[in-house]
Design a protein around this nucleic acid. Sequence first.
DNA 1: ATCAACAGTTCCGAATTTCTGAACTACGGA
DNA 2: TCCGTAGTTCAGAAATTCGGAACTGTTGAT
Lengths: 114, 114
Amino acid sequence: MRPFFHPALEDIKPDAILYALSDPERVAIFAKLAGTACGGTCSALADLGDRVIPKSSLSNHFKVLRESGLIRSERQGVEMRNQTRCAELDERFPGLVRAILTAYGQLPEQLKTG
Amino acid sequence: MRPFFHPALEDIKPDAILYALSDPERVAIFAKLAGTACGGTCSALADLGDRVIPKSSLSNHFKVLRESGLIRSERQGVEMRNQTRCAELDERFPGLVRAILTAYGQLPEQLKTG
DNA sequence: ATCAACAGTTCCGAATTTCTGAACTACGGA
DNA sequence: TCCGTAGTTCAGAAATTCGGAACTGTTGAT
């Protein structure tokens, strides 16, 4: 198994961010993650209500989110913990993630800072 | 030739917006359009400096921008005039287009309102 | 009217990307 | 050591993207 690749903050490209978040399934995953304090696992995020994302697709979604710079993943025993890089991202691209989640109607409480 | 389709404001979907603007060529086109008062034609926007976009690809880029709701196109004689729907869009998705263009470093003067 | 030039669209095949089931890897517990 | 669980990788089918070539529709000249 290859180790995870995470781009450095300065290497994060807006087109990759937009591409990653142009898929509603990935947005749903990302928004759920942004709404949970401690990192979420893959399988905890697979259930979208109307459909359960297949494992291999889910794995790919996480890869896209990770390599675009939206999340950070870490293996912890048998599972994987994921967390968003919202704080960093907001420094580099002010207001971007916030505006996108808001557009989707999925801005979690945690990010609704006055 | 089929007539142009423009989604109504309430039918515009964020995923389509993000998808359209996840392509740097389309962003360049859109940003140039946003920076010109009167609408720009296709061919006036084909030259990206480092490469000239082929006509058919350009036509497709405009279609994607149009059908996602980012621009409005109108045939005027032999050419086509395009303009952004920034004002409308900002009503529906506050701050979104602004944050995206800023992230790309392509926010035109016209949109830098206090 | 006819023709030529021009702006942009449509068509279609090649190349690339996406999707997902099946096989596989890695870790932890009994 | 063997099993179960979490997630990854592989591979082929399906869908999408790209761009050259042919086409449409408009304007202006003869």
